[in-house]
Amino acid sequence: MNARTRETAAFWAMRLTAYSVVVIVGYIVVDIVVRGAGTISIPFLTEPMRKSGLEGGILPAIAGTFWLVACAIAAALPLGVACAIYLTEYARPSRFTDMVRLAITTLAGVPSIVFGLFGLGLFVYQLKFGQSILAGGLTLACLILPTIIVASEEALRAVPADFRAGSMALGATKWYTIRTNVLPYALPGIMTGSILGVGRAAGETAPILLTVAAAYLPFLPNSPMDKVAALPYHLYYLATQVPDMKAAEPMQYGTALVLIALVLGMNLGAMLIRAYFSRKHRW
């Protein structure tokens, strides 16, 4: 075997390895889409579950996930963007800045179950929110904070320095400059980051397990202090806590399909926004 064929063989081996990732992802997604599609119907999406989740729909889980995510993003977005503005516009190399950066990377690496423990200790017991949408939403907010900060920071850094200099040269204050000449141009990137955060929050299960905890809850919530069902938790429940696995399969696949459609749809949306604006804004 000469050098040329050896190289071709090696490249093909690498190619096969790389494409096997595509095959595996494709297999998981197609399996869920094909076997879940039959379950999806208007009643499935608009009715509460019945008979331990073996019949009826998943509306309470969809609503629960919606409220949890809304609560998480409402808390994490302003905080995350403000933190990113500090890092890009104000921060000078200092101990404080280093500590903020260390905190963000640490936060990004904390296991989700540990966020659950934290939420349980702080929000559920210390602040006496009980297991509720509020406790779960705030826990998820801490979890997606690094995602939002990193994405917003990238978006803010992509705004050319000239935009800032031009505004400052005309006598605008720093805050006025940020408001009129920086934030508007960073908005698409910030949106991308928040959508990714939403996708992440919608799919997380472990923190919800500890802070919202309701395995089978076929009701819609009335207030932020209520316990609530959620899509990922409902899937976990259907996949492990139901005695008759075969009978539960249509509901399992249906729930899994709604969940990945939601999460991957978010990711796709974020990708499209990014692609659209990177074409539109060139400076």
Partner: peptide, 28 residues
């Protein structure tokens, strides 16, 4: 003065990231 307030708010938000990590260690 709005400029000073803005600086304060953003710095506080950044400090908050440190606070959350601190609270995680403290509570656990």
């Amino acid at each position: 003065w709005t400029d000073k307030v803005a600086r304060l708010v953003f710095t506080a938000a950044a400090a908050n990231a440190i606070l959350i990590v601190f609270l995680i260690f403290v509570f656990i």
